[in-house]
Amino acid sequence: MLSRTASNLYWMARYLERAESTVRLLAACFRPGLPFDGEITKLYALPLQIQGVYEEFEEVFGDVVTFENVVQFLISSNSRASVRSCLEAARENARSERSRLSSEVWESINQTWLEFQEMQYRSLNVFTDWLKQRLFVFQGAVQITMPVALSVKFISLGTFIESADQTLRVLEAKGVLRSLSNQSDYYHWHMLLKSVSSFEAFQENSAASPSQDSVFEFLLFNPTLPRSVRYCISQVENLLASLGVETRIAPLKSTANLLVKLRFDNMNDILECGQNEYIQNLQDEVLQLGEAINEGYFTIT
């Protein structure tokens, strides 16, 4: 497989995953009826901060951090973090590599982009449901219509790396979240779990009600939750190992180092290091892993 092809497929998957994370995040933060007694604009600003585009938002809207503005910015603006930009980039990558995708996968992405452009935006809920459905179609088409060969492996690599990254972003934002309101912790953790579509899984898995410790452990270390950082990174490890004997060493090494932490650490290790710093370190390592994949497979030397 061409290096450029592998790179395009990997980024296609990352962009799609990012688009989905963005709307899930919006939907979770702006859930109607969520008790909130802090300064509401700080809540609205949260998705912007998690995606690292607060300053970019300010350039467009100044300090008018309203629900409508944030939604508009993160869904339909030309910002690189918007759903529009992600879908467009994913579709461009897919179009470049359509000879490597099953027609069902290509059509699922193309259709998503076409529908997005013609969509009359009605409400965040309707939009979120629509996008989730579209991405289920994409993931389903990948699983059902494509052989588990190189194309699928690079698509999955992109999906899991981005998913790990997005989960870490959400945890990073936790500090902000907690300082926003005096309401009981339950709602914070509830919202946080919702934003990674893991609330139901948590309920099933855990006897305790959501608390800082239980949610952190769950989202970082759970071995079976599809959005936990550990699950994502062990999938990455499997994928890299299955790429064959000629596999580049650096990405595998990064993955192994990360997994040692994710497998054996617990809440004590987090507290010892300091929560923010612990998350920050993991983020750096995921970033380095992405770099190692880039250098190992995509960079033309």
Partner: peptide, 25 residues
């Protein structure tokens, strides 16, 4: 796709020993 062959751009190719090569993973 129909022929089952690579779709390449110029930047995927280079010449070494007077032969044509493509960059692959």
């Amino acid at each position: 796709k129909e022929m089952g062959v690579e779709l390449v751009e110029g930047r995927d190719l280079f010449i070494r020993d007077n032969k044509v090569w493509m960059h692959t993973i």
